[in-house]
Simulated assay, not measured.
Amino acid sequence: MLIANMLPLLTRYSLGFDLVCGPDETVTLTIIPRKAEGADQHLAPGESRPISITASAAEIDAELARGADGALGQLIASRKTLADQIAEQREAADAARASAAEAAKAKAMTPRPTPTAPAAPAPAPTSPPVSAKPDEPASLW
């Protein structure tokens, strides 16, 4: 019955168990999630971190019998959700970084218009105006 209740978890993970007897009839169960054979996805480091439960044997049996609805199933699901969120954030950051690099590269490749030099002032006329008389100075008005 225990294995049948663990089947939903076993479809994604291969689970390793380590049991240690403690004082006062307590048991420490360490569960090590591993990638299931033939699984397409790799496990994130948070998903594959060992989980330790210390309680009486009856309490551990009752919790494991709940399968995916129990504390172990919820913990693994939470780790999976967090791992998915981290992966999405990394993908978004990588995409933003690549987009910014492409924009900077495109900006560097765009030819910049060269500023035109201001027009030089017109040279002062060297010949006297038509109305000038040879014996009088030229007038500005």
Rank of each mutant, 00 (worst) to 15 (best):
L2S: 12
L2T: 15
N5W: 06
M6S: 11
L9G: 03
L10W: 01
T11W: 02
R12C: 02
S14V: 04
L15R: 06
G16H: 00
F17V: 07
G22M: 15
E25Y: 14
E25S: 10
T26H: 15
T28L: 01
I31N: 03
I31C: 04
P33W: 06
K35Y: 10
K35N: 06
G38M: 00
G38R: 00
A39G: 00
L43C: 02
A44Q: 02
A44D: 10
G46Q: 08
G46A: 15
R49N: 11
P50H: 12
S52M: 07
S52T: 15
I53C: 08
I53S: 04
S56I: 03
A57Q: 07
A58N: 02
E59L: 09
I60G: 11
E63V: 14
R66N: 09
G67I: 08
A68W: 06
D69Q: 14
G70H: 15
L72P: 01
Q74N: 14
L75R: 12
L75G: 04
K80E: 06
K80C: 05
L82C: 09
Q85A: 14
E88C: 03
Q89R: 14
R90S: 02
A93Y: 02
D94H: 01
A95C: 01
A95D: 03
A95R: 03
A98W: 00
S99E: 14
A101W: 00
E102W: 08
A103D: 04
A104N: 05
K105E: 10
A106P: 04
A108M: 05
M109I: 05
T110D: 04
P111Y: 06
R112M: 12
R112D: 09
T116S: 14
A117S: 04
P118N: 06
P118T: 14
A120W: 11
A120F: 06
P121I: 10
A122P: 07
P125V: 09
P125R: 14
S127M: 12
P128M: 05
P129W: 07
P129D: 12
V130L: 10
K133C: 10
P134H: 11
D135Q: 07
E136Q: 13
P137R: 08
A138M: 01
